[in-house]
Amino acid sequence: MGHLILLRGARDTAMNATPHLSADDAASFIDGTLSDDARAAIERHLAECDSCREEVAISTRLLATVPASPRRGVPWRLVLPLAAGILVAVMLVRPGGRPTATPTERGGASDGSTIVLIAPAPDAPLVAGRTRLVWRALDDSVLYRVVIKDASGAELWRGETSDTVLAVPPGVHLTPGKQYVMRVDGQRTDGSSVSSTEVSVRASQ
């Protein structure tokens, strides 16, 4: 904030010539954590600079209206019916039953609790610059991150997207015939994250 105080000349003159507030200054003003001199200087600037004042006003309102985080706990009245349901399900499921995912869906369950990978298919080779990774969208998802690792677990490449498709760029160095592992992590709007299981893919010969 020192720069603002030093650059200012006579009171309330040529305010537009002074620099706009830094993000630190604006946020500190909103939080009320500045020294008196710094605060007074910022007040003088805000009285004349509409864009900075608007930023402070809008940010103040945004902070006051952030939606509350969703409740994480399970209500007690749901616990017993839920436990009974799980018990019934466990008793009814027999070994060797129907698989839970179609053959082309890998890396997770289709109920939204994990991310389901759709492509590449299990026997399809991984080709940098050609292979497109596709997965099923999560409800309320905001961002996905794809990670490809080599057999030793070292990260080879990562990409981020808000879409459910991402191409492996040509620059990724894949050794022909070698096995790699890929995983998709999804970020939800409530801040929680969900991952697919790690699936194996072989680089093209």
Partner: peptide, 20 residues
């Protein structure tokens, strides 16, 4: 840079920076 001498809450700073 923010963490070098934090003068405000990180949430407030994030609102200002994100909006910019």
């Amino acid at each position: 840079e923010f963490a070098r001498a934090p003068r405000c809450r990180v949430s407030t700073w994030l609102v200002v920076v994100s909006r910019r």
